[in-house]
């Protein structure tokens, strides 16, 4: 099988995988990074969202081999030791989750938004999160968390 070298959370990782391996399969099954979830497996729910060169993408709809040479960040790459990333801390503070299944994708998607727009409005957050589905919360606290997290990431607090 082809050898593939990926940069994941700042570390070079080499795996043997078929060309048909999806990025999410490489992360979860070859590298054990199970924080990235598979929800719908049809590029609708966003639970598998990771960053590729800083941009949020659905890792169920990208081949691992396409990510060769790119910098991949997963939910495991956000916290520094025991210190949560500001967006993770905001989800905790504002109770932006219930079962937690969609949360890794929500947080990764939100970080991409915050990097582009340091102070998103409620409407901008809701438009941005169209690609992330949550079956528990009704989204209200997620939107609050994203707005607070974006502020904290961009020097607020």
């Amino acid at each position: 099988m082809p050898k593939l070298t990926l940069s994941v959370n700042g570390q070079p990782r080499t795996i043997d995988c078929a060309n048909a391996t999806l990025l999410v399969e490489a992360l979860r099954e070859h590298l054990g990074l199970t924080g990235t979830h598979v929800g719908c497996d049809s590029s609708q729910c966003g639970a598998c969202t990771v960053h590729v060169d800083g941009r949020s993408v659905k890792s169920c709809t990208m081949l691992a081999v396409e990510a060769e040479g790119a910098a991949i960040t997963t939910i495991e790459g956000l916290a520094k030791g025991n210190d949560l990333h500001p967006m993770q801390a905001a989800f905790k503070e504002h109770h932006g989750l219930q079962c937690g299944f969609c949360t890794p994708g929500m947080v990764m998607s939100a970080c991409d938004l915050a990097a582009r727009n340091p102070a998103p409005s409620e409407g901008e957050v809701r438009h941005w999160l169209e690609g992330n589905l949550c079956r528990c919360t009704g989204y209200h606290n997620i939107v609050k968390a994203v707005r607070a997290g974006a502020g904290d990431m961009n020097g607020g607090k």
Binding site: S43, G46, T49, R55, S56, V57, K58, T61, M62, S109, D112, L113, W128, L129, E130, G131, N132
Partner: peptide, 9 residues
């Protein structure tokens, strides 16, 4: 088009 992640790819 689609959503933010789809538009990124």
């Amino acid at each position: 088009i689609g959503d933010a992640q789809v538009r990124n790819r």
